[in-house]
């Protein structure tokens, strides 16, 4: 049942989506074709799917560890942004460097930046008991403004006609392209490695076990001597580092420079990806690809059918709604009582 509900939720989303399309005056079958098939029926489209899925999977895999431990980090968008700032800063200050260590150093800094940003809610939670949902979310706004501040000021390209943009990253600061003629880049490999690492960590290591125990049975965890604070720190730092990797892989990849806005809300959509993937590393890959498809589908439907791009957001929200609703079948067993009424 655990693995059937995502499919059930998807089916319901698509049915509701068809209703929505007819309501918008678009032929529902044609709309669905444009949303889910046209974007990926050629090689370029298929690689674009991987490009879009990369930041989603990276953020979601990090969040999933926290969600398993009941640590509600919803600020992945901010951690992504700070990761991009940290990694990007290296290029901004050393634009001439052609060292082969440039990109690895940027990736490392990206992870550190994301982790540092997530360390703030971790510290405030463990030291002052401040709710991590609210603090991590507030920090998203702060991070976005910080990025805006930097690209309007110290990070701005001096030869950039005063546009709020950094220099365009040189080759040594850019993710290598994996497939000639596409935008598929090394970030996808990082995402895959992150998924594998997380899988092993959750399945085979003590810290992974502690995460799962603290999440499902906090009292049992405490009795076993597992430190709740340690898990809060670990899952936030881990989630932040993953989101930071997503950030640097975006600016060193498809974006190619630091801009005031570097993400269409990947950090938030990743919350849906994590749940839709059942907080499981493999599930998150599938869910990430699917949510990436809604971004591409939204663009295709906008170009071909003139549909509003906001449909993407509606689809994404709807999937999560239906999934949570269908989970009642996972958590409870329905049976008819004597009065013939569901109980």
């Amino acid at each position: 049942m655990v693995y059937i509900t995502p499919i059930l939720a998807l089916t319901l989303t698509i049915l509701t989506g068809m209703l929505l399309f007819s309501f918008l005056g678009v032929d529902p079958v044609e709309a669905l074709r444009n949303f889910f098939i046209v974007p990926i029926n050629n090689q370029y489209g298929a690689t674009e799917l991987l490009v879009k899925a990369t930041p989603l999977i990276l953020c979601a895999i990090g969040l999933s560890v926290g969600f398993r431990a009941n640590v509600w980090n919803i600020g992945a968008e901010g951690q992504l942004t700070v990761g991009a700032i940290f990694g990007g800063a290296l290029f901004v200050y050393f634009p001439e460097t052609e060292s082969v260590f440039m990109l690895p150093a940027m990736i490392l800094l990206g992870a550190i930046g994301g982790a540092l940003w997530a360390a703030i809610p971790a510290f405030l939670k463990t030291r002052f008991n401040a709710n991590e949902i609210l603090t991590s979310l507030m920090l998203v706004y702060v991070a976005t403004l910080l990025l805006s501040l930097l690209v309007h000021g110290p990070f701005r390209d001096p030869d950039g006609y005063n546009f709020p943009e950094s220099k365009i990253f040189t080759d040594s600061a850019t993710m290598p392209i994996l497939l000639e003629g596409t935008r598929l880049h090394f970030g996808s490999i990082i995402a895959l490695l992150a998924v594998l690492t997380t899988w092993i960590m959750l399945a085979k290591t003590l810290i992974g076990f502690q995460v799962k125990v603290i999440g499902t049975a906090p009292k049992a965890g405490a009795y076993a001597g597992f430190s709740q604070k340690k898990i809060i720190w670990f899952s936030l730092l881990f989630g932040g580092a993953m989101a930071g990797l997503a950030g640097i892989s975006e600016v060193s990849g498809p974006v190619g420079q630091l801009l005031p806005s570097i993400s269409p809300g990947y950090g938030f959509t990743a919350i849906i990806v994590a749940f839709l993937g059942r907080l499981h590393p493999v599930g998150i890959i599938f869910a990430g690809l699917l949510m990436a498809l809604t971004y591409l589908g939204g663009e295709t439907a906008q170009i071909n059918l003139g549909m509003p791009v906001a449909v993407t957001g509606v689809f994404q929200g709807m999937v999560l709604f239906y999934l949570l609703a269908c989970d009642v079948f996972v958590n409870y067993r329905f049976q008819l009582n004597r009065f013939g009424k569901a109980a």
Partner: peptide
Amino acid sequence: VLTLSLMANQVATGLALTLFGIGISAL
């Protein structure tokens, strides 16, 4: 309906409501 009748997690449902609200209002 989700949290009271279908007993879904309130935190996750609240997040879903926000994401859905952003999308539907933009539409």
